[in-house]
Amino acid sequence: MEEVKGGSSSSAIRSSNIGFQLLKKCGWTEGTGLGVAEQGRLEPIQVHAKNDKQGLGSRKINNNNKNKRHQLLRDSTSKDNEAKKKAKALSKRAKKLQEQEKKLQDKEFERAFFREFWPDNV
């Protein structure tokens, strides 16, 4: 596709274009689509020059919408933080319960061991 300063062109790319040359080296023939079954697009993708200094996907947002968006972000992060704190507290409690369970199992094993070898003492 030939680059045009103000926008894009819908004409086919020239044979001097580096993209054209790379496609040719990869086995592409002019007039066929891209892909295994040559089902891909025949025309190049349209290109539009972007001259402003904003990033891709940005758009002008009035202050009211911007403030709402920031408030939503703050609310969601505070909810996330609360959920993380709850999860952390639950995980601490779960670890404590697991430790208690392990101690009880060890104690029961010890009792069973003594019962087996010294049934009169236990």
Rank of each mutant, 00 (worst) to 15 (best):
K60W: 11
G6I: 02
E101R: 15
E3N: 12
N51M: 04
G35W: 06
P119W: 00
S78R: 14
I61D: 02
G40Q: 00
K79A: 14
K102C: 05
A112H: 04
S11P: 00
N81Y: 07
L97V: 10
R59N: 07
N67Y: 07
K96V: 05
M1T: 13
E116F: 02
G6V: 06
H48F: 11
Q54S: 09
K86Q: 05
S16Q: 05
S78H: 06
K50C: 13
G40L: 00
A83R: 15
P44G: 04
E30T: 02
N63A: 14
F117C: 04
K84N: 15
Q54Y: 13
G57R: 14
T32V: 06
T32L: 04
K102M: 07
K85I: 14
W28Y: 01
K92L: 06
N62Q: 04
I13G: 03
A83L: 09
R69H: 07
K88F: 09
L90E: 12
F113V: 02
E101C: 12
K107T: 15
K103M: 09
R115I: 08
T29F: 01
K102E: 09
A49L: 09
E2M: 07
T77Q: 13
H48I: 15
C26F: 08
R41M: 04
S58L: 08
S15D: 05
R111K: 15
V122D: 02
F114P: 00
E3G: 06
K102A: 13
V122K: 03
K92A: 11
N62W: 05
Q21L: 10
Q105P: 00
N64Y: 11
K95D: 10
Q105H: 00
R14H: 07
L56Q: 12
E108V: 07
E99T: 06
W118A: 02
T32G: 01
D75G: 09
P119F: 01
R59Y: 07
Q54D: 10
G31F: 03
R74A: 10
G40C: 02
F20G: 04
G31D: 01
F20Q: 03
Q39F: 05
V47K: 14
Q100F: 01
S78G: 03
K60Y: 10
L34S: 05
R74Y: 08
A87P: 01
E82N: 15
A94W: 03
L42E: 03
H48T: 15
N121H: 02
T77W: 08
N64L: 12
K95T: 11
H70F: 07
H48K: 14
F114C: 01
G7N: 04
V36H: 08
E82D: 12
G19Y: 04
S16V: 05
S15H: 12
P44M: 09
I45F: 01
V36S: 13
A94H: 11
K107C: 08
A87N: 13
E82G: 10
E30G: 02
F113T: 15
G33P: 00
L56I: 14
R93P: 03
L104A: 15
A83T: 13
N121Y: 03
K25S: 06
H70N: 12
R41S: 08
S16A: 12
E30D: 15
A112S: 10
E101N: 14
D80E: 12
K86R: 13
A37D: 11
L73E: 13
F117D: 00
A37M: 05
G27T: 12
